[in-house]
Design a protein around this nucleic acid. Structure first.
Length: 1140
RNA sequence: GCUCGAGUGGCGGAAUUGGUAUACGCGUUCGACUUAAAAUCGAAUGCCGCAAGGCUUGUGGGUUCGAUUCCCACCUCGAGCACCA
């Protein structure tokens, strides 16, 4: 037989497979389906990266194994081709991105085909194909219909030199990637997708899917769910002279601003009321009290004309045109100059929103020309607003919105630790909020770039009332609270929050300890041990708590063998912290008897002890007694005492004879850090002694707060002012607003433009295509303009896996029938290689991709999928049943591969020199699949040699005439009795089968290498060789097909139908459990844990016999001679350890 | 700073209910074949030591008959997050 010529073999079989369509997935089949997926590549100009090959080979192996296991497998491929690099290339060269994309996909396709992946190429898709992005646009319109797509101001990165908005990845170190100019923040109206509406489900449903734990964690961190409460703190105005001024005009029934501002703005408001604009005049006629056209239906406990509008009313520091306070609705009529004051209006809207108002804006023009339209909008808004009564001004806290002109206001805080509220010693508020509340600028700035990590703040001199303690606490404006998370204000609990602690230390604000760590009988010992450093650092005192008595005690310190205790605890105050010596003395005496008894029962001596002024001092004339009986003062060094003798909760419980006792470790003395864990509440009034977790809800109720869940996740900025993306299918009509492009007109195809660069004012280059932009409004047929923003790169990739199920459908994005088949309930059943495949039923069966996509892409596609699920367009609530991620491939020096560094590897060269099979083998062999590894071309010879040896063994079979017989290692004619080979083979089949499921490809290959080593020494049957080829086939599909055809099927060229005969459609071999069992087992003999000898035993030999045998071993005898045997430990089938 | 992951020969890496550390591969050395070289095959290969033996999984400590594996502290590298209350 000829030499192993990979070039010939690989191309030949790639063509044959394609011709025979052996990897095509069938849209219905009696076989169970299996959908395996890789992230479809972005066809960059630099060609296929070895990282792509890693993921693609892994899933190829899994797909091939599944086919052999009898599944109808869908393993599709496509192109995620919209994106910046292609666009930037177009800007530079003027070549149309379509052309560039075509070139690049051609290269990628050729390269992927050269690697022999078993993709179903008939389902190839491309996100830039109008037939594809028609449906991306269509899905966007569904979002719009459901109110999940909306326009809002959003901050973008702006390069003042290039005059374009930059994507986050184009900003490097705060500067523009191209020209190095520092990037500015600019506000721009952008389309947004309301992913936050799905935050809860995106978080919760992670429980139902089988993702790697670190992937779930990344998702959860990104969503950032936190449960907590909103609590209102009353603020006392520090200037009691401020009262509402007497004067003309309506005295507001509701308090909507502070008196100072009210006074300042009142005259202006009155003046404006007298001189309304035309639009305002018209609207006021509609809105004014008792206008029947605005009357809402009766019910809900209110009379019919429940919405009362005021005009030119002062809200906060603004005079709003119209406001309905009950409905919390503001209506503004904008004049013509408004284009110039948009930013200001936005600010204003934002602040009003913060106050709980909804703001509607109409232009003067609109009111005059389209009054009916405006009116309808207002009415439907009023009908849709649910809160018919004022929610502010009610309950314990706030008064904003109430009458009487308010000398008080409230600050709402969000906290996840309502249980620490008794320790809230000040409020910390964001600068923006401070300005809003007081109108003053404190010179504190929120640090958007976090350049200044130091926490700074200023006392606003407002005083808030802690609703739990009733005490007055200061309100500080600080730089470490963000305005846009939670409520922009926090209750600062320095004792239990690191940031608050740091801040309180710096500004010498009080620190009040209200939680202490708790260890109960159940978690006691372990938890205590794990908290050793904490204890060591802070000189912990153990508290024995029983009924109403609290007794503090220090357990025995091993090093000096003394024990001490402090007793005390009156009314929840911590005497140690408070340093109340008197209390200690008093209670100490009182409890002396009890303690003495306890000490006797525990056989430990206790002493009263108190650390004062950093020194351990004696108490009550008692002293510390060392083990030798001497009495001694505790020195400074003793602070470092560790090695606590742990008493178990059981021991103490028994000694005290109290069944429901709790052990509490209490930290004493000035702490150098905050304790942020959960525990037992102290210094918390009636809550003292309660479990902090359990008390949360009650505390929230107690202080009149409400439970609230917040998320870090923000809505998705969906607009890009770029060319190379899906056009957002909307038409902006002056009369009708944004009107969706009718479905029949989809797709909105990207027009050819002259320039690809965004315009100078940051619009997409599409804005300059007048002939494309100017269209008729689909509704009113008037003049209108197309939306020129395009969608982000993430759009097309958020649903591509759905399109694969039905890639040519031009009526739907995919038919329900196909979706149901490919995503619907899986039928793994008895074929399942592992019992616990997944708890999620349905979806893509296995999705592998890069770690870098485990947050955004995964989250976005889950969001889209859930949305489509809610529209009943897809059959499963989650898109992917199982998700794994591969590690990156780094360049030889361990740095990232990049074109600019010139350290990339070209797969074409490698395929030419080593062959696709070798490259695949090497990538799977190089290291742990989920870990990053450095590339080393030199190491590729290992897998290559391996394949050559496989080839050689195959050749020997061919040389032999009697093909089905046994093959002898030396000449193939003289079989030698060697029965161990089938055992090794079966073990290998098992190992490879299992390793593939766990993506441990490297060890699978290593075990096959060992098998081949063995094959060269043993006699093997053709039947065994066949099985070996089959388990190797998913890894190295070409060479195994060639050997399969030539040796097993005795075929030199594939004339007959390959479909039935390909190794890749053969049946995955099973291992024989009986053959794997060893009759003889090697046992290791250790002496004092050191390896000394090995003995062979029979599988069912008794322990006694084995021990006897081990002790008779000559080496063992030598080592144990003259020594006393203390113990002999036998671990079944493993070892014997002799302790002497 | 916080969270997560990792640290094992000259190199990539194996080994988990705690039970033979260094599988497999690369490299290196020696040998066979050869006029020679390459390829191939065989042998050796953690470190110290002629050997007996001792030491070794980032460092230090703990638990254990026994620790790469569990616990604690520290160091280094990588990834992610960045004051998220």
């Amino acid at each position: 037989m000829t030499e192993y010529n990979h070039l010939k073999i690989e191309q030949k079989w790639q063509k044959e497979w394609e011709k025979n369509k052996i990897y095509h997935a069938k849209d219905n089949s009696k076989k169970p389906k299996y959908y395996s997926l890789i992230e479809f590549p972005y066809p960059s100009g630099s060609g296929l990266h070895v990282g792509h090959i890693r993921s693609d080979t892994a899933m190829d192996i899994i797909s091939r194994k599944r086919r052999m296991e009898g599944y109808n497998v869908l393993y599709p491929i496509g192109w995620d081709a919209f994106g910046l690099p292609t666009e930037n290339y177009a800007i530079k060269t003027g070549i149309h991105p379509i052309k560039v994309t075509k070139q690049n996909t051609d290269i990628f396709r050729r390269q992927l085909k050269a690697l022999g992946f078993s993709f179903d190429w008939s389902r190839e898709i491309n996100t830039t194909d109008p037939k594809y992005y028609k449906w991306t646009q269509w899905i966007f319109l569904q979002f719009l219909k459901k109110g999940l797509a909306y326009k809002d101001k959003s901050v973008i990165n702006w390069c003042p030199k290039d005059k374009i908005g930059l994507a986050n990845e184009e900003v490097i170190g705060g500067a523009c990637e191209r020209c190095g100019t520092p990037v500015e923040k600019r506000e721009k109206e952008q389309w947004m997708l309301g992913i936050t509406k799905y935050a809860e489900r995106l978080d919760k449903d992670l429980d139902t899917v089988d993702y790697l734990p670190q992937i779930k964690l990344a998702q959860r961190n990104w969503i950032g769910r936190s449960e907590g409460a909103e609590i209102e703190f009353k603020i006392k105005n520090t200037n009691p002279s401020l009262t509402l001024p007497e004067g003309e005009g309506e005295i507001p029934r509701f308090f909507t601003t502070n008196p100072e501002l009210w006074r300042a703005l009142q005259n202006k408001a009155l003046e404006m009321r007298k001189n309304p604009t035309n639009g305002e005049k018209i609207i006021w006629e509609i809105l004014r009290r008792n206008n029947p056209s605005l009357t809402l239906p009766e019910g809900e406990g209110r009379n019919s004309n429940g919405c009362h509008f005021r005009r030119q009313h002062i809200v906060d520091r603004f005079i709003v045109d119209f406001v309905c306070i009950e409905k919390k609705l503001v209506i503004e009529i904008d004049g013509d100059i408004h284009d110039y004051t948009k930013t200001e209006d936005f600010e204003r809207t934002k602040i009003l929103n913060q106050l709980g108002f909804e703001v509607m804006r109409f232009t003067n023009d609109e009111v005059i020309k389209k009054l009916e339209n405006v009116k309808q909008k207002i009415i439907s808004k009023l009908n849709s607003v649910s809160g018919r009564t004022l929610s502010f001004g009610e309950g314990q806290g706030g008064v904003f919105g109430e009458d009487l002109g308010g000398v008080e206001s409230t600050i709402k805080v969000f906290t996840t630790r309502p249980d620490t509220i008794f320790g809230a010693t000040f409020l910390a508020i964001a600068p923006e909020l401070a300005k809003k509340l007081t109108g003053k600028d404190f010179g504190i700035k929120a640090d958007p770039d976090r350049e200044n990590k130091e926490k700074i703040g200023v006392d606003t001199e407002l005083k808030a009332k802690n609703p739990a303690t009733g005490k007055e606490i200061p309100v500080w404006v600080v730089n470490y609270v963000s305005y846009d998370y939670g409520t922009g204000a926090i209750m600062a609990v320095p004792a239990h929050d690191e940031r608050d602690f740091e801040f309180a230390k710096k500004y010498e604000l009080p620190i009040k300890n209200v939680i202490e760590p708790l260890f109960t009988k159940d978690n006691g010992e372990d938890a205590l041990k794990s908290n050793l450093p904490l204890i060591k650092r802070e000189a912990v005192v153990c508290v024995v708590k029983h009924w109403k008595e609290e007794k503090y005690l220090c357990l025995k310190w091993k090093k000096v063998s003394w024990s001490g205790f402090v007793t005390g605890g009156i009314d929840g105050e911590d005497p140690v912290l408070a340093g109340k010596r008197e209390i200690l003395e008093e209670t100490g005496y009182k409890n002396a008897k009890f303690i003495k008894e306890l000490g006797q029962k525990l056989n430990v001596q206790f002493y009263h002890v108190l650390k004062k002024e950093n020194r351990w001092a004696h108490f009550h004339g008692l002293y510390f007694e060392l083990e030798n009986g001497e009495q001694e003062e505790i020195s400074e060094e003793e602070k470092d005492i560790h090695d606590i003798l742990w008493l178990t909760a059981d021991q103490v419980e028994q000694a005290l004879n109290v069944p429901d006792m709790k052990l509490i470790w209490r930290r004493v003395h000035e702490k150098d850090e905050a304790f942020t864990g959960k525990g037992i509440m102290i210094n918390s009034g009636k809550f003292s002694g309660m479990d902090s977790e359990k008390a949360k809800k009650e505390i929230i109720k107690f202080v009149g707060g409400k439970e609230k869940t917040t998320f870090k996740l923000r809505d998705w900025v969906f607009s890009r002012q770029r060319y190379w993306g899906e056009p957002i299918p909307l038409i902006n009509c002056g009369k009708c607003g944004f009107v969706p492009v009718p479905e029949k007109d989809l797709p909105v195809v990207l027009p050819k433009v002259v320039k690809y660069k965004p315009t100078d004012n940051g619009e997409s280059p599409l804005a300059e295509m007048k002939s494309w932009v100017n269209v008729k409004c689909p509704k009113c047929k008037g003049k209108a303009k197309r939306e020129t923003d395009t969608m982000p790169n993430w759009a097309g990739s958020s649903w591509y896996f759905l399109r694969y199920t039905d890639p040519k459908n031009n009526k739907e994005f995919a038919s329900k029938k196909h979706l149901k088949y490919w995503l619907g309930q899986d039928k793994l059943g008895s074929l399942a290689p592992k019992k616990e495949l997944s708890s999620q039923v349905g979806g893509v069966d296995w999705y592998n991709g890069g770690m870098e996509h485990t947050t955004l892409h995964l989250l976005y596609s889950r969001f889209w999928h859930k949305f489509l699920y809610d529209l009943k367009l897809v059959p499963t609530s989650e898109p992917y049943m199982k998700r794994t991620s591969h590690g990156m491939i780094l360049a030889e020096q361990g740095e990232k591969m990049s074109k600019s560094k010139g350290n990339t590897v070209n797969p074409d060269d490698l395929i030419k020199i080593f062959g696709a099979d070798t490259l695949r083998m090497y990538e799977m062999f190089m290291g742990s699949f989920d870990q990053s590894v450095s590339w080393n071309t030199d190491s590729m010879v290992g897998p290559r040699r391996f394949l050559e040896r496989v080839w050689k063994i195959g050749s020997k079979f061919l040389e032999k005439k009697n093909f089905s017989g046994l093959l002898h290692p030396s000449d193939g004619t003289f079989p030698v009795q060697n029965s161990s080979f089938p055992k090794i083979l079966n073990k290998t089949i098992k190992k490879v089968s299992e390793d593939i499921e766990d993506m441990r490809f490297n060890t699978a290959i290593s075990s096959m290498m060992m098998l081949v080593n063995e094959m060269e020494k043993s006699e093997i049957s053709s039947e065994d060789f066949k099985k070996f080829l089959q388990i190797l086939a998913p890894f190295a599909p070409h060479i195994t097909e060639e050997l399969w055809q030539r040796t097993v099927l005795k075929r030199v060229s594939p004339r007959t139908v390959l479909k039935k005969n390909s190794i890749h459609l053969s049946v995955w071999p099973k291992w024989d459990e009986n053959l794997i069992q060893d009759e003889e087992i090697k046992i290791v003999v250790q002496i004092n844990g050191k390896l000394r000898a090995e003995i062979m035993i029979k599988a069912d030999e008794k322990e006694e016999e084995i021990k006897k045998e081990a002790l008779q071993n000559s080496t063992v005898l030598k080592h144990i001679a003259g020594k006393e045997l203390k113990k002999v430990i036998y671990v079944k089938n493993r070892l014997i350890n002799i302790v002497i």
